[in-house]
């Protein structure tokens, strides 16, 4: 069963465009949604949540069309945005009391467990919270109403390495039973290298690649060689950097010829992102 099925989203803005965005997330898995700033991650996430009007395309969540079943589905979705601004002069406790009324499956026990785990004091005002604490607070809210699908926009940015590690632990805890699915966008790709099952990569409003993480990484190679070798393979490279020691460049695995003698390594997710972003620069 698909937790999330996104088909052919199109949305045109004066200076930016989502073009034919499609990808699927199977139930019970974690998908990382990566892309540079401004690539279209948040726009895509907002379309998933029916928060903007699409020019065309459909979003199905747990088998139902969000445009037709929004209120019902939002009980099943937990979402958190990295930079959400609550009414800042209220205490957390007061805000939670308002928010929880919207959810039929709200569970106080789970909520207080997360507050303890995140070391949040509900008598604090929002204005007194640090960035990381705000992220943790919105996560505690998102996790406390029995959501089956979590959609999180940059949940780990703003958190220190210890808190990020703890959060990834929570993510893996949540998917153990195979009932909950998680989509989270990030540009801290090392987080994904550990726990994500699937990676969807968006660049300039288009999905470049959406697949299992290992297949995603295996479909690229990072080449390292001399300048004369660069000329042999220049045409095949997605993009490259040159310095006085030679070049490094990203290539699709199918375009790489091992007998060329050019050394190749497995790229990291970050390197894949960087070379794709560089490609934009080279041709614009």
């Amino acid at each position: 069963m698909l937790a999330l099925d996104i088909r052919h989203l199109n949305k045109k803005y004066p200076t930016f465009e989502l073009r034919d965005v499609s990808f699927q997330l199977e139930k019970g898995y974690i998908m990382g949604f990566i892309g540079a700033n401004g690539a279209g991650k948040t726009t895509t996430i907002k379309s998933i949540l029916n928060m903007l009007h699409l020019d065309s395309g459909e979003v199905h969540i747990l088998g139902k069309n969000i445009a037709e079943h929004e209120i019902e589905l939002k009980q099943e979705i937990g979402y958190a945005f990295g930079d959400i601004d609550f009414y800042t002069r209220s205490k957390m406790k007061k805000l939670t009391d308002v928010i929880k009324k919207f959810y039929t499956n709200w569970d106080d026990e789970i909520y207080y467990n997360y507050l303890r785990r995140f070391k949040l004091d509900e008598n604090k005002k929002i204005v007194e919270l640090s960035t990381g604490m705000k992220v943790k607070y919105s996560l505690a809210l998102a996790l406390s109403h029995g959501a089956k699908l979590l959609i999180l926009d940059e949940p780990t940015s703003g958190l220190d390495p210890v808190a990020r590690d703890d959060l990834l632990d929570i993510f893996q805890d949540l998917v153990v039973d195979g009932e909950i699915s998680i989509l989270f966008s990030t540009h801290i790709t090392s987080d994904l290298e550990k726990c994500a099952d699937f990676i969807t990569f968006i660049e300039n409003g288009q999905i470049i690649h959406s697949s299992e993480k290992d297949d995603f990484i295996a479909s690229y190679r990072l080449l390292n060689g001399s300048e004369s070798q660069l000329n042999q393979v220049k045409e095949q490279l997605i993009s490259y950097k040159v310095n006085s020691f030679g070049f490094t460049g990203l290539v699709r695995s199918q375009d790489y010829d091992p007998s060329s003698g050019i050394s190749a390594t497995m790229p990291s997710l970050e390197e894949i992102m960087i070379y794709f972003a560089k490609k934009e620069d080279m041709y614009v």
């Binding site: 893996q172 998917v175 039973d177 994500a196 099952d197 699937f198 993480k213 290992d214």
Partner: peptide, 13 residues
């Protein structure tokens, strides 16, 4: 799924 969690790797792995 238990092994994935304990080893800190993805389920598919």
């Amino acid at each position: 799924r238990q092994a994935a969690k304990e080893l800190r790797v993805s389920i598919i792995t």
